[in-house]
Simulated assay, not measured.
Amino acid sequence: MTNNYLIVQNGVKLFSGNADITEAFDTTISMATNCPAFQMDVEDEILYEFQTTCYNCRYRRWNAEGFSCYKDFPGIS
């Protein structure tokens, strides 16, 4: 999977895509759908109801550039 939104900063993989960009949002849907560790976050933390997307995953953590995944992004090395 090619991912133009994934950056590595200080050894940590970050997703830097903007959810307003369709391609970036679709990438998070694809990653979450293919992720064996994906788990929907608690209700208060869900951004997009009824969507399997990294933006809704309990293992994503926000940072200044976007978010990182505590279970590692699936299929991306």
Rank of each mutant, 00 (worst) to 15 (best):
E23Q: 06
G11K: 04
D72R: 15
G75E: 10
I7Y: 13
V12S: 06
F15E: 09
D72V: 14
W62C: 04
K13G: 12
I76Q: 13
D41N: 15
N3H: 08
T28N: 08
Q9H: 09
F73L: 01
A24H: 03
Y48P: 04
C35A: 14
S77Y: 11
S30H: 04
T27H: 11
I7A: 05
Y55L: 02
E49M: 01
V12Q: 12
P36A: 13
T27C: 14
I21S: 06
M1E: 08
C54T: 13
V42K: 03
A19N: 06
I7M: 08
D26C: 04
F15V: 02
N10H: 08
C57M: 09
G11Q: 14
I46K: 15
G66L: 11
D26F: 05
Y48K: 02
Y59T: 03
V8H: 07
D44L: 00
Q39C: 04
T33N: 12
A19F: 06
N63H: 05
M31S: 07
L47N: 05
N4M: 10
V8C: 15
P74Q: 03
R61T: 05
C35T: 07
R58V: 12
C57F: 12
C57S: 11
M1C: 01
L47E: 06
S77T: 07
D41E: 13
A64S: 01
C69K: 07
R58M: 14
C57K: 07
I46H: 10
T2K: 15
Q39P: 00
G17N: 14
A19E: 08
F73I: 02
D72Y: 14
G75K: 04
T22W: 07
S68H: 13
D26T: 05
A24D: 01
A32S: 05
P74W: 03
P36D: 15
M1F: 10
N63F: 01
E45D: 08
G11T: 10
N34E: 14
N18K: 14
F50L: 04
T53N: 07
R60V: 15
N34I: 05
T27N: 02
